[in-house]
Write a protein that binds this DNA or RNA. Structure first.
Length: 472
RNA sequence: GGCGUCGUGGCGGAGUGGUUACGCAGCGGUCUGCAAAACCGCGUACGCCGGUUCAAUUCCGGCCGACGCCUCCA
């Protein structure tokens, strides 16, 4: 039985979808005004894996991930760049799609944009006003009246009174209560806006997710996810809006992923300590985006994960071991679930324990290597198929082994790329070395090996005089 | 200040009331002209102090330390 840690209750619960066999999930996406960093990647990959595993378990999954394409940050950034909001958000939406595709994140079934759901947002705001959960403030904004919602704070474990007294930000005078938040924001001159019953304006941040999830998934669905920093106030406010507007209970399970840290501190835009996905992929330390994905899966999604070069290298080594195991094996077309599958499923059933699941893959690789060692081709072939199936559920081992092992780490700069040995140069040197070996000139043979080793290329002399290479 | 998470061997990182995590790195062996990959073997870790227990890294209490949310943020 699949267990999911539900933020709402603070414990693991057996997963039971509202409709048997069907899972509807909504994950908070990004605000598109800059490139995505590794923290974004972690969240996307965590929920991508959850989605894939639910499918592996036979559920029909509807996966929604929104794009926030209008908010204060976007407006500011566009103004600063001297470009239109649309041009800015289009640009970064494309970049985001590129980054996530690179990392093997499956495209969502629905990817709603806030600006495409203005009618739904307005409708929900009207409902909230009609039900007296919202009011038109003196400054023209529409506010949500937090005190009217009895369960407010349930998700994040906060008390309204403490929020009031602990307010660290200057209180907006237009609010009747310091904890109230904006549903609809009146436009200032020159700002992008949409007509509404309260004049020209734009949606507040939180309402879009309530409106879009309602439009696509309805008033109640199975899983709502996002980064732990969204728990409060974003998700708390979503609950307040949605439950008040629809009278239904909104998401059944709430999942939150932990942060990516740098030097033990949260990676964030405001701390300016973030690493962009594309920069890391082009850093010259990552031979394939799968390495980054693997690294992010090597820790449990709810805990913190520290980003460092050493860890990227370790991820590369661990992943390479799996690829090495798959070399020279023809996977059978049929998968026979063995002990590794059992361990894998137990791990994933336990709140998507990917580190434990990866351990199952490593153990499977050991079994596979043993089979190869013993010359049991049939067993090796069966185990390889099992390995590929399980790895596929995590979105790794998508390349052919030699493609991965021979891939050079991408670099952003031309000169460092030029410093890498090209495949033609490698082939040439290997040919020279083969000739030297045939002539029993081992001094020359070793000289060439050293040359290649220094260039990060490792040679493997196989029986029969064949030499294969791979990159370190 | 309020709420919360965490502290595991050289590094990373699961997990458990008493028998192996797993990977990387390291050491020894097999194989190899030399290597590599792989296989075989090796590490007796669980912040500190108490308590419960036949038994605690695992439960309880305290302490110390790190981090997070309370403000835009995945």
């Amino acid at each position: 039985m699949l267990q999911i840690h539900n933020t709402l209750t603070g414990r693991k619960e057996t997963f039971e979808p509202l409709t048997p066999g069907v899972v509807r999930m909504y994950v908070c996406g990004d605000t598109v005004y800059d490139f995505c960093h590794i923290g974004h990647a972690r969240s996307k990959i965590a929920f991508d894996v959850a989605r894939r595993y639910l499918q592996y378990r036979g559920f029909k999954v509807t996966f929604v991930r929104n794009i926030t394409d209008i908010d204060d940050n976007i407006i500011q950034r566009a103004a600063r760049n001297g470009e239109s909001v649309q041009s800015l958000t289009d640009r970064f939406t494309r970049a985001m799609h590129e980054d996530y595709a690179n990392l093997g994140v499956m495209p969502p079934d629905h990817e709603p944009k806030a600006t495409a759901h203005i009618p739904g947002i307005i409708a929900m705001t009207q409902t909230l006003i009609a039900k007296d959960y919202a009011y038109l403030a003196t400054n023209g904004d529409v506010m949500y009246s937090v005190a009217k919602f009895a369960d407010y704070g349930k998700l994040s474990g906060k008390q309204i009174d403490e929020l009031r007294s602990g307010a660290r930000v200057a209180v907006d005078e237009a609010k009747r209560d310091p904890v109230d938040f904006v549903l609809w924001k009146r436009a200032k001159p020159g700002e992008p806006s949409w007509p509404s019953p309260w004049g020209e304006g734009r949606p507040g941040w939180h309402i879009e997710c309530s409106a879009m999830s309602f439009d696509i998934l309805g008033s109640r669905f199975d899983i709502h996810g996002g980064g732990a920093d969204l728990m409060f106030p974003h998700h708390e406010n979503e609950i307040a809006q949605s439950c008040a507007a629809t009278g239904d209970s909104f998401a059944k399970y709430w999942m939150h992923n932990g942060f990516v840290n740098v030097d033990n501190e949260k990676m964030s835009k405001s701390l300016n300590n973030f690493f962009r996905i594309r920069d890391v992929l082009a850093s010259g330390h990552v031979r394939d985006p799968e390495v980054l994905r693997f690294f992010l899966l090597a820790s449990h999604y709810r805990g913190p994960i520290n980003y460092s070069l050493v860890q990227i290298e370790q991820a590369d080594a661990a992943l390479s071991r799996l690829y090495n195991a798959l070399r020279d094996v023809e996977p059978s077309t049929q998968v026979v679930p063995g002990t590794a599958t059992r361990q894998f499923e137990e791990a994933m059933d336990d709140d998507f324990n990917t580190p434990d699941a990866l351990a199952a893959l490593q153990s499977l690789a050991t079994e596979l290597n043993r089979a190869k060692h013993a010359g049991d081709v049939e067993l090796a072939s069966t185990l390889a198929a099992e390995l590929l199936r399980l790895a596929g559920t995590l979105g790794v081992l998508r390349l052919s082994p030699m493609t991965f092992l021979q891939k050079a780490a991408a670099t952003g700069s031309a000169e460092s790329a030029a410093g890498q040995l090209s495949e033609a140069m490698i082939a040439d040197l290997i040919a020279q070395r083969v000739a030297a070996r045939q002539a029993r000139d081992f001094k020359e043979s070793d000289r060439i090996r050293k040359l290649l080793t220094d260039g990060g290329v490792i040679l493997e002399d196989q029986p029969g005089g064949v030499t294969v290479w791979r990159r370190q």
